[in-house]
Design a protein around this nucleic acid. Sequence first.
DNA 1: GAATACTCTACTAAAGTTGTCAAGTATTCG
DNA 2: CGAATACTTGACAACTTTAGTAGAGTATTC
Lengths: 141, 141
Amino acid sequence: MLRLSTKGQYGVRAMFEIAKGYPDKPIPIKEISERQDVSVAYLEQILNKLRNRGLIKSIKGPGGGYVLNKKPANISIGSILRELEGPVAITSCLDPEEGCIRVDGCVTYMLWKSLGEKIEGFLDTVSLYDLIEGTLYKNSK
Amino acid sequence: MLRLSTKGQYGVRAMFEIAKGYPDKPIPIKEISERQDVSVAYLEQILNKLRNRGLIKSIKGPGGGYVLNKKPANISIGSILRELEGPVAITSCLDPEEGCIRVDGCVTYMLWKSLGEKIEGFLDTVSLYDLIEGTLYKNSK
DNA sequence: GAATACTCTACTAAAGTTGTCAAGTATTCG
DNA sequence: CGAATACTTGACAACTTTAGTAGAGTATTC
Ligand code: FES
Ligand code: FES
């Protein structure tokens, strides 16, 4: 249960590769593709979205590629996933675009809301920098 | 992102109704259907699974219905969802039935693993009793 | 034996996921 | 200039999952 789509997963892994080139080495899409085993065509979709949302910028021509718009420590995993897949919404009732009519009498509303907040809280504390440094292995984050 | 299926949601809400009858008042499926706005036919599928997994038992005939097999405080939301939807598996790599070949070099493995553990940890500390008492509103659980 | 209530399997329409493909634009460098 | 590199965009399709419906059957009570 609670599966994350491949788009989100690949997005994080692609951002990790781009982060390694920060701040002055643009990473071409082909290199990301090879290092992370994801097709170039699929990555194009993902990186396009991330670029339109302002997380990365692109440089065309030979020597070009993608570069982060902020430093790795300031880009959280949560922010990447939100751009690609929208906010965490355990149920449609918690989705800002959907909402719920029977929320008043519903015993589970608070349950899913709390869970969602726990998840976002976690994803927002982990950054690309943590991924590069392997912080997750070392402390209790 | 990270949507829970309706099966899981309805399952928890159905268990909540059954819990209210614990320990000696069987709740018929029709009553659950009315109180939670879920069709009888769909609930049948869900309750059947929960019965086969041993969370509830059923009593046939007039006056019959469903009864919890354990007291509400001993049934966690996590245990309900696991029976209906399998264990939390943010990515296929974390799914016991799938697994991953490139886990060794993968920077995100620990990330998804940690997130999954956080989620299960939360879901396992909240019980049907908490839902009935509204504990979620009161403390920091 | 009629009414109540659970049991089980099959099936399907809609939605979402996971990509591929093709044609185009911009930049660099010799 | 012109060739190579690299990003841009939109369409599209196979596949899987979800969210239910339907219907025929079994068990129990009174
Ligand atoms: S049904 Fe919408 S909050 Fe529970
Ligand atoms: S690809 Fe399987 S763990 Fe990252």
